[in-house]
Amino acid sequence: MKSAVAIRHVGFEDLGAFAPALREAGYKVHYWDIGDQELWTLEPVKTDLLIVLGGPIGAYEDDTYPFLRDEIDILEQRLGADRPTMGICLGAQLIARAAGATVYPGGHKEIGFAPVALTEEGRHSCLAPFTDRPVTLHWHGDTFDLPPGATRLASTALCDNQAFAMGPNVVGFQFHPEASTGPFEKWLVGHAAELAAARIGIPQLRADAQKYGAELERKAHETMSGWLRGLRW
Rank of each mutant, 00 (worst) to 15 (best):
D63Q: 14
V170E: 05
P56Y: 02
E121T: 12
T151Y: 06
V103Q: 04
T119K: 06
Q174C: 07
V189P: 02
L79K: 07
L231Y: 10
E215H: 13
L79N: 01
L75A: 05
L15Q: 00
Q77Y: 12
G182K: 15
L228V: 07
A99V: 07
E13W: 00
A99E: 03
L50W: 06
E24T: 13
H176T: 01
R8Y: 02
L39F: 09
K2D: 14
T136C: 13
E76S: 12
E43K: 12
T131A: 13
L137R: 01
G80C: 10
H30F: 12
R97G: 01
T119N: 06
I111W: 07
L53I: 01
G190N: 02
A157M: 10
G80Y: 08
F184L: 08
L195P: 06
H9N: 01
Y60R: 11
G100E: 03
P134C: 09
R69F: 09
G100P: 05
A209E: 03
A21Y: 06
E110M: 11
M166I: 13
F175W: 09
R218E: 15
V116N: 01
T143I: 08
S3W: 15
Y31N: 06
L195V: 09
R232T: 15
T181A: 07
E76I: 10
H124Y: 13
L79T: 04
G16N: 03
W139K: 00
F18I: 04
L53S: 01
T136S: 13
I200D: 08
F130Y: 15
V135F: 11
A17P: 04
R152V: 13
R229T: 13
Q77L: 14
R199L: 15
I202K: 13
F164Y: 15
A157I: 13
G122H: 05
F164R: 03
E121C: 10
P148G: 08
N161L: 12
T119Q: 07
G230M: 14
R218L: 14
L158I: 09
G190V: 01
W233H: 15
D36K: 12
K46W: 15
R78E: 10
Y65R: 07
L137W: 08
H176K: 03
P183S: 06
R218Y: 14
R8L: 00
Q93A: 07
A220Y: 05
L127T: 03
V189E: 04
I74Y: 00
V29W: 04
Y104R: 13
Q37T: 13
D36L: 14
L68H: 05
P115N: 09
F164I: 09
A4P: 02
A165C: 12
V171P: 02
L195D: 07
G141D: 11
R199Q: 15
V135G: 10
T136M: 14
I95C: 07
T223D: 00
D208N: 12
K211M: 14
G149E: 04
I88Y: 05
G112C: 11
V5L: 15
A101G: 07
M166Q: 12
R232P: 10
W139F: 05
D70C: 11
I7H: 02
V116Y: 07
Q210L: 15
A101I: 08
D208I: 11
P20M: 05
D33T: 14
G167A: 05
G107L: 09
P134D: 11
T151F: 05
E178A: 00
V10G: 02
A209I: 06
M1I: 11
L49K: 07
